[in-house]
């Protein structure tokens, strides 16, 4: 999104700007944003997940005029926000289990419809474990029934709440509690895991999008688009975890930005199974810039350096760049076909 007609210093990269019309500023720039997760929560210093969740929910609250409810799977987001009897949530919020958030949300939408209250919208949220692993069956069911739910996955690439274990979204070579940095192939194995946004697209649901906490405007625009549609919608947000990734707490947004700028994490939008828009890389960087600031990859840069593994990760990023057309005006493989 570019502001016309004249340059505004920070364009729409920053959260707000005094020179912008209030309507052109982000939801997060508003003093009256809903702060869906209020202060006092116990997320770690610099937690990307709580930030991503507030970004998403505040935008959804704005889009629905506050007429919405949320379901939440077990995971950091639930644990750090609701130690009984305290809560951080500033909207009706329901927690059930680690694995059933999509099913719970489907049930909430069905119940609201049965009561003639379909105008109250439902958002479900889970970590990557709750989404791509244990919750995956319920999620696929929610998709194929096209239930009226926006499902948001906060992807921090591991089971963080229980002590940083591997999930189906943990990237290759990353160290976790159960993929140790040992042996000839240290860290998580190559060739395993899954990228659920593409699986969601295969369900041909109305809307699928990816985003990161580093591009607020893009994230908010996607939430707004999603809330303007009905049926099953899926939003996959990359949220760095300083604890699990071993990154500095002040680097959370930087790490997310590098994930996008290296091509490691493709940011795009799709409708009914077709990619409709891709966020282009603005200042390309080699993957090493991304890997080096995370201790979960420290074994790649020790003695001896594992340049062979860095090269394999680079090849994956290059593949993403090519496949999704992340550079310049390249429309990309996916969009070429029709």
């Amino acid at each position: 999104m570019t502001v016309e007609p004249k340059l505004y210093q920070v364009d729409t990269f920053a959260v707000g700007n005094r020179l912008l019309d209030p309507a052109q500023r982000s939801e997060q720039a508003r003093a009256d944003r809903s702060n869906a997760i209020t202060s006092g929560h116990r997320a770690c210093q610099g937690c990307g997940e709580v930030l991503g969740a507030r970004y998403v929910l505040d935008a959804a609250m704005r889009a629905t005029g506050g007429n919405m409810v949320a379901a939440n799977a077990t995971g950091c987001l639930e644990v750090f926000s609701t130690p009984y009897p305290e809560t951080s949530w500033q909207l009706p919020w329901l927690h059930s289990l680690f694995g059933n958030a999509p099913a719970v949300a489907s049930g909430m939408a069905a119940a609201l419809r049965a009561q003639g209250r379909s105008d109250t919208r439902v958002v479900a949220q889970a970590g990557d474990g709750g989404t791509v692993d244990i919750g995956f069956g319920c999620l696929s069911g929610m998709f194929e029934r096209n239930d009226d739910v926006l499902f948001v996955c906060y992807d921090n690439e591991g089971y963080m709440n229980t002590g940083v274990q591997r999930s189906g979204a943990t990237p290759p070579a990353a160290r976790t509690a159960n993929t140790k940095a040992l042996g000839p192939e240290p860290g998580n194995a190559f060739g395993q895991g899954k990228f659920v946004p593409l699986i969601a697209m295969a369900h041909e649901i109305p809307y699928v999008a990816t985003a990161t906490v580093a591009d607020l405007r893009d994230l908010e625009a996607k939430v707004e688009t999603a809330m303007g549609m009905s049926g099953a919608r899926y939003l996959h947000v990359l949220v760095p975890c300083p604890l699990g990734w071993g990154s500095a707490s002040e680097d959370t947004i930087k790490v997310a930005r590098l994930a996008r700028e290296t091509g490691i994490f493709p940011v795009f939008e799709a409708e009914r199974g077709r990619i409709t828009a891709v966020s282009k890389i603005r200042r390309w960087q080699p993957v090493e810039e991304y890997l080096r600031i995370q201790r979960r990859y420290a074994h790649l840069f020790g003695e001896p350096r594992r340049d062979d593994i860095v090269a394999r990760i680079q090849a994956q990023a290059d593949h993403n760049i090519d496949r999704f057309g992340l550079l310049d005006d390249d429309p990309g493989y996916e969009q070429d076909q029709e």
């Binding site: 920053a14 005094r18 003093a31 937690c47 959370t252």
Partner: peptide, 17 residues
């Protein structure tokens, strides 16, 4: 210069505008 970044990026809503 009042870009609101600090206000926006705080995970703890600890920046007051």
């Amino acid at each position: 210069f009042q870009c609101d970044n600090c206000f926006g990026v705080c995970p703890d809503n600890a920046v007051l505008k």
